[in-house]
């Protein structure tokens, strides 16, 4: 990778901000900021399929909650140690991804979205009914993260940054190129001698696994698993965050998650109309700003300063 100041400087500033934040953010702020990081990773992982692979999954809560329940059940029901729990969480997500990928990737577009949605609803149904293992609607409470919120903040942001760096590397590799090729024109990918199913499947598993990492961090931060993370509306979170920030860039889902979580936190303090506000924002973006916030910033501002590039 070449060193590019325009790309590296904002990132370094952001990392510095994250590092210093607990010093002035307060306890609740630190907690919220950890949440934002975890949901950002969720959105980035989701966008591997959506922005790069052209596949809109409407069931990513399945992988998020699969890891969360895997961890929760291992720790609280089976009474296994933390490290085993982490592995079980990821293993559950991996298995879910294999099955869901096998079933959904034979379809495209709306059919793909529907299969992923259906599978996640199925899991939600199981979680609600299988009470003595999942805790039903109460979930599983009492998971110990074994450290202070602030310590966990640093641990989780480290995991988040490392995970994002790995995703970034994958997307800028030849595999990332293949994935964009599949998005652009899957027939030509076939006639380039590659199995489109295989490319999609690998991307699907990657996307699910990093979603699982987010699910694990979330569970440790909360100290509990609740069925809310397996509900279909939780699958909508990365979809909306990515649309707000813009799916065409790596940073889009991160920016979108910040806006989404902060707006929700702020607006729900003062009114009950968060959903109405959210609806209006989504409408405005889909109708007028397809590129999301990052798209607007790039088109209106940065492109003026960047001369001699493409076009």
């Amino acid at each position: 990778m070449k060193f590019d100041v325009r790309k590296t400087a904002p990132f370094a500033l952001f990392a510095l901000f994250v590092f210093l934040f607990p010093l002035f953010g307060g306890k609740y702020g630190t907690f919220l900021m950890a949440r934002i990081g975890i949901l950002s990773l969720y959105a980035v992982a989701f966008n591997v399929l959506f922005g790069y692979g052209g596949l809109l999954s409407f069931g990513h809560a399945l992988f998020f909650s699969g890891a969360a329940y895997g961890l929760g059940i291992a720790l609280l029901v089976l009474d296994w140690p933390l490290w085993t729990g982490l592995l079980i969480g990821l293993l559950v997500t991996f298995l879910f991804a294999l099955v869901a990928g096998f079933l959904s990737l034979r379809h495209k577009e709306i059919h793909f979205a529907m299969v992923t949605l259906a599978l996640s609803m199925l899991f939600w149904g199981i979680v609600m009914k299988w009470r003595h293992v999942t805790g039903g609607e109460d979930g599983l409470a009492g998971i110990s993260r074994g450290m202070s919120v602030r310590a966990f903040y640093y641990l989780s942001w480290t995991v988040i940054f490392v995970s994002m760096a790995v995703v970034y590397r994958i997307l800028s590799s030849d595999f990332g190129l293949l994935l964009r090729g599949v998005r652009e024109n899957d027939l030509r990918v076939l006639f380039s001698g590659h199995s489109v199913r295989r490319v999609r499947m690998i991307a699907f598993v990657f996307s699910a696994l990093f979603t699982g990492v987010a699910g694990i961090l979330w569970t440790l931060l909360d100290g509990a698993v609740t069925p809310a993370v397996s509900h279909w509306s939780f699958s909508a979170v990365p979809v909306i965050a990515t649309l707000i920030g813009g799916p065409q860039s790596f940073a889009g889902p991160i920016v979108g998650t910040f806006v989404y979580v902060l707006a929700e936190d702020y607006i729900t303090k003062y009114t009950m109309y968060w959903q109405i506000f959210l609806g209006l924002v989504i409408l405005a973006i889909v109708l007028f700003f397809r590129g999301g916030i990052v798209g607007i910033v790039y088109d209106r501002i940065l492109s003026r300063f960047v001369s001699g590039g493409e076009e």
Binding site: L177, R180, G181, E184, N185, R188, S192, H194
Partner: peptide
């Protein structure tokens, strides 16, 4: 039938 949104070089690389 090419990858319209990729560069010529990327098209050949795939």
């Amino acid at each position: 039938n090419i990858f319209q949104g990729l560069t010529v070089r990327e098209n050949v690389r795939i």
